[in-house]
């Protein structure tokens, strides 16, 4: 006979939470490496970075900041709703967060698109000929850091999608909210990184 046994399912919300935090730590250090690079090159090319930052669109940047801040609040509230057993509200708040994240990406798409139209993209001839080395570095870092951040938004969308499906199905509920809480933690990380990216790229003119 086959002796298939189920490991008695080990549910440890505190453990999952630590796991998520540890993952967040390693994500922070991933961006940390980029922040080190940024700070070194900014130190070495002070004026060029200021010049280059002037090219960025402050309005779009500020708008995206607001979008992320609001979405952070809505996903946090979603957990509260779930814990208060208001499933409908929880789902609604999660969906709002989801849509805000997509709006962020659309903004980013147009922002990058404008840069590309101006001939500003990694490896472009225009940049090599018209720009100082400091400016090339600034935009190199701009694309890498905001690009990596956008990737994290996409990852956040995937996690939110899972959470949304599970809340719908009822396997994530007031008694077992861990998945939703972890989705929230991850989303706040995305917000946290943007809080630093915004001033470092848009506000140093």
């Amino acid at each position: 006979m086959s002796q298939v046994i189920q490991h008695d399912e080990h549910y440890d919300p505190e453990g999952s939470k630590i796991g998520m935090w540890l993952f967040i730590f390693s994500e922070l250090l991933l961006f940390g490496g980029l922040f080190i690079i940024y700070s070194v090159y900014r130190y070495l090319n002070h004026d060029a970075f200021h010049m280059a930052a002037g090219e960025l669109n402050l309005t779009v940047g500020a708008l995206n900041t607001l979008i992320l801040l609001v979405s952070s609040m809505t996903i946090a509230m979603s957990t509260t709703a779930l814990q208060k057993k208001q499933k409908g509200t929880a789902i609604l708040l999660l969906e709002i967060t989801f849509i805000l994240a997509i709006i962020f990406l659309i903004n980013k798409y147009f922002e990058w698109g404008v840069k590309f139209d101006h001939g500003i993209f990694p490896g472009s001839e225009y940049m090599k000929e018209e720009m100082s080395q400091g400016e090339v570095l600034f935009f190199g870092l701009y694309f890498v850091m905001t690009g990596l951040h956008a990737l994290h938004i996409v990852a956040g969308l995937v996690i939110m999608g899972f959470a949304l499906a599970r809340v719908h199905k009822g396997t994530v509920h007031a008694g077992r909210p861990t998945l939703l809480e972890n989705a929230g933690l991850y989303w706040h990380l995305v917000d946290l990184i943007w809080i630093f990216l915004f001033p470092l790229f848009y506000l140093i003119t």
């Binding site: 980029l34 190199g140 890498v144 990596l148």
Partner: peptide
């Protein structure tokens, strides 16, 4: 520590593909 080298290696790869200059 691992993520730091992770991002560094990604940058080398991007440097190879796009020439970001880092």
């Amino acid at each position: 520590a691992t993520p730091v080298v992770g991002i560094t290696l990604v940058l080398v790869a991007l440097e190879r593909i796009f020439g970001i200059g880092v």
